[in-house]
Computed example of a mutant assay.
Amino acid sequence: MRKPVKTLDGHKDTINSIVVSSDGKLLVSAGHDGIINLWDLTEFSLLDTINISGLIYEVVLTPDNRFLASAGSNNKINLWKFPQLEHMGEFIGHTDAPVCLEVVEDGKILISGGLDNSVRYWSIPDGRLIQTISEHEGSVDCLALQDKEYLITAYDEDIKLWPYGIHPDRDNYEFIFYDMPWEGVTTLKGHDSLVYSLRITPDGWNLVSGGADNTVIVWDLEKRKLLKTLEGHGGWVYDLAFISDGKTLITAAGDGYIIYWSLPGGKPIKSFKAHDRSVKTILITHDGENLVSAGEDRLIKIWELDS
């Protein structure tokens, strides 16, 4: 049986999200227990803990590592000074829980998707709501960004590609949005159930999605078509990651397994049982040496990354 390099134990319930600082020294984890933990990855020690009322679905860092944002079941997004974890304010506007986050424009804009069927754009750090997309027919469960051309969202089994809709007004240091409704929205159909994860390949040409139908789909973004359906998991596919060259995809699922796939062919390379229960989130450290996984068993595991 494969063994992790290290196992971190500091949560009381399912871990939904992990994020690592750009220098690779700090890891943030958050989950169902309403806890945000800050870990030292050099010493594998717990540095700080924050308790928030309700579930936390996702945490993200701005590229400069100045701010951490968390989204949870209290319908709010919290902004924290990083790494001090000093509370900077709340982003208020969602009428149901925000569950997914993306940071854009060099950390100046935060995009959130929620169970209220909306996508919202916010100004960082003041939390000003500057744009809302309300055209979704179901909850927005995940987001991705293709450069500055398309915002990609998933609700139910559908994936939508929206024009990015934002460009900087450099004279006034503001951001200008196109008037709604935006034109040119494309819908991708291929999954038979909820889509839980979206990732763009490092070269920007393909989108990969994972869903509650236990499959992973590779899409051609230019032609807007399904290229390949990858089958191998025995549970919902919760997260995806790429090795830096983009030729290897790593997937994590509700069966507790992590699978390596070759791209573009989509053949499984190897798999291993990573957790006793669902693997909810994975990431590759910036130095490319380790894979980090976490999930329903409340544990964070650090693995040597196979090339």
Rank of each mutant, 00 (worst) to 15 (best):
S29A: 14
L263T: 02
I217W: 02
E157L: 04
L198M: 08
E43L: 11
D239G: 04
D171V: 10
Y178D: 13
L115I: 15
W182V: 14
G246V: 01
G107V: 08
F91V: 03
L47T: 00
I35W: 10
L47S: 03
G127R: 07
K3M: 10
I176Y: 00
L46E: 14
K225N: 14
S278Q: 05
E137C: 09
D179H: 10
W303L: 04
Q131G: 13
L207N: 02
T281L: 00
T229M: 10
L151I: 05
I18Y: 14
G10H: 12
G204Y: 07
E289C: 07
W205I: 05
L230A: 05
N117C: 10
V216W: 05
Q84K: 12
V237F: 08
S278L: 06
K108Q: 13
C142V: 08
S29Q: 06
L161S: 00
W303C: 01
V279Y: 04
D220C: 06
N37L: 09
G138V: 09
W162T: 04
P83W: 01
Y260P: 05
L263K: 03
S45Q: 11
G190A: 01
K12P: 01
L27K: 01
L230T: 01
T7Y: 04
H11E: 05
G211D: 04
D106V: 10
L207I: 04
T251K: 02
